[in-house]
Design a protein around this nucleic acid. Structure first.
Lengths: 212, 212
DNA sequence: TTTGGAATTGAGTGATCGCTCAAATGCGCC
DNA sequence: GGCGCATTTGAGCGATCACTCAATTCCAAA
């Protein structure tokens, strides 16, 4: 909002010399961690200043708006998730084994990451307000489901699943199970209960195999 | 915050005569609907004024704080949920049938209610900030799980389930499934996909029956 | 009819929000 | 060495936040 009156020049009061230029990837990473824990609305610019070690002018110069930064954080999360799923698919003995392993890992959160899934949190937090970020989160969840679908299709193609199996329905159910796990981690389920839940879900996937 | 200076008496400007006294249950109901859709942080006092048809002074006189009102809304939700589950248990042919029906209903949200589950939303939104409301939501989810546990125990006692069945594990899994459905309704799954998911979950419960 | 007090009002409080912008810094290039 | 410009700063903007409180209304009781 441009000032209507002509203000006196404001004295600049440097505290220290100017900060080193920010690293974009590092900044987005820090923003992701913060938004993931606090959610969108409960994270203020002041919080972001601290996490990114950037002042408001710099944050807005680099990212344009709080929501734009949030969207970049969501995208980083989505890209990492996809990378993880693809890497797992590559190293697993079979598509169903990859899905089972994904379930087990989801039920054993790493101590270094915030709990749950930021896409799930965002979809719930922004469900009632039209926003680009909310739209992004829904899109990314659909894309994650597509990854699961592709794995179930591979399992069909390879004979691991019967040709009559409904890959879309299986993918939908599998993702819903992952949503359940995400909520469980945030409601504070004991680690062993969470792991047991995840193992049950993994077992369910493996039980889909055709007997050979 | 008491005024430091002695201010002139403020002229009172009535718009209409004083509002009729509020109805506490109606007010909490309206607050529940609003918090359920918008979430805690994204709901302002201004929003609550509109939904409750009360002015700030009255809201604070009646409820003490925004969080206290939110907690009452959560409690109302929890009590209604328990009532629904108990009523269903009473009218169902068997405990497992009651649980199956609960799953089906959860996957077919009523058009008059906001989507999903406010307890799940709250647990996710307030996961990172210590608050009474967050604690309440976690407690109420545990209590809901206890209801499911009691039903699985009844199924064991009646022979509907084998005596070796682990009711706690089953209740935990069942609730996690309901969490998945809650997220699905908020991510905008098509009604038929949601219903199909819920039906699959219901079928799983019924498949637990011992063959008679 | 009068009075006391419960209930409501709504302007306003101090704080915080997302964001802007003039001033200053510092680096690369000439 | 000087200059141009990209980048950073941080006070401060207009708006909104949760909440307060003196003034008023209105009802029940005396």
């Amino acid at each position: 909002m441009r000032r209507a009156d002509i203000a006196a020049p404001r004295p600049y009061i440097p505290s220290m010399s100017r900060a080193a230029p920010y690293n974009r990837e590092t900044a987005i990473d820090a923003a992701l961690a913060l938004f993931w824990r606090r959610g969108y609305h409960a994270t203020s610019l002041k919080d972001l200043e601290g996490a990114l070690s950037m002042k408001p002018g710099s944050i807005y110069a680099a990212f344009n708006s709080k929501e734009a930064l949030f969207r970049e954080a969501l995208q980083l999360y989505r890209n990492r998730s996809e990378k993880n799923v693809r890497a797992r698919a590559k190293s697993a003995a079979s598509p169903l084994e990859a899905l089972a392993e994904h379930a087990r890992r989801t039920g054993r959160p790493k101590s270094g990451s915030p709990a749950g899934c930021i896409l799930v949190k965002t979809v719930l937090e922004l469900a009632d307000e039209p926003s680009q970020a909310g739209e992004d989160a829904r899109t990314y969840l659909r894309e994650m489901q597509d990854l699961f679908f592709a794995l179930f299709e591979q399992a069909r193609a390879s004979g691991e699943l019967p040709t009559g199996a409904d890959s879309r329905r299986l993918a939908r159910r599998f993702q819903s199970n992952m949503f359940g796990l995400a909520v469980e981690t945030l409601r504070g389920s004991p680690a062993e209960d969470l792991a047991a839940l995840a193992d049950d879900m993994a077992e369910e996937v493996l039980r889909l195999r055709q007997r050979q």
